[in-house]
Design a binder for these strands. Structure first.
Lengths: 131, 131
DNA sequence: TTGGGTGCAAATCTTTTGCAGGTGT
DNA sequence: ACACCTGCAAAAGATTTGCACCCAA
């Protein structure tokens, strides 16, 4: 098993994700990293995002609409995506333990995880449409 | 707004999806359509899958692991994916109305839909690992 | 006849990977 | 020094699209 070695790039990527709560795509991370490391490569960004996700320091959100997104928040929570502006926001209303218990009780395999996504119109777009 | 015109290919794609409950990818649909229409193109398959999803006759399941998958079942239900064999099976244990109600009550926008996915080990893989 | 549908191929977008050189330990 | 990490560029995989021809209404 490979030993992890420090890398400025990886550290910056993680720091960046901790400050953003809009679930950026790899490309957005890349654009922002270029401000710090003008020669950083997209490959490096992807490699580090995968690595960080593998060791559980960030979470990868499989494609909502096209590219994968990354989340600096790693505790279990769910997401809402606005079908108008495509923003993605965190939600904490779901009782995962209860749902997982329910699901497992009637399932012959073994369920260990669950993701949930809500869709609709966000507060801002709702205001817009009422004008 | 475009008027829909009959097409044998589209009809066959829909029929095919109604008989399959393993949520095939576009490529699997393509391979199977080639048995009927040897000259059908991948583009036609994608175009019709999108079209059918747009008019609500099938559902598109955004990437579980790579390619999108398609589901002939259009009523609200959720999915389980085995982390070992990557099979995807339907699940009906989730009380969507209740969850949507809960979610909406504490949300300032308007939530209209929800998807949920479970992950773990399926019955078959569980048996295998116990051998 | 006419506008949607098709096959084909090229293009696009996202992500991965091979390689040679750089760097943390 | 050794193994991991990086930049660069090419490759791979999934999906979309332009175009000329075909076909349902």
């Amino acid at each position: 098993m490979a030993t992890l070695k420090y890398s400025r790039q990886r550290e910056s990527i993680k720091d960046f994700l901790m400050t953003r709560h809009d679930h950026p795509t790899a490309d957005v991370v890349y654009e922002n990293m270029k401000l710090i490391y003008p020669h950083i490569s997209l490959g490096t960004v992807y490699r580090n995002l995968s690595l960080l996700a593998d060791i559980g320091e960030i979470k990868k959100l499989a494609s909502f609409d096209g590219a994968d997104r990354f989340d600096g928040r790693t505790d279990r929570h769910c997401h809402f995506m606005c079908t108008k502006c495509h923003c993605i926001v965190d939600m904490d209303t779901l009782d995962f333990d209860h749902i997982l218990g329910d699901a497992n009780s009637s399932f012959k395999g073994e369920i260990t995880d669950c993701t949930a996504r809500f869709f609709g119109v966000c507060e801002n777009c709702l205001k817009e449409s009422k004008k």
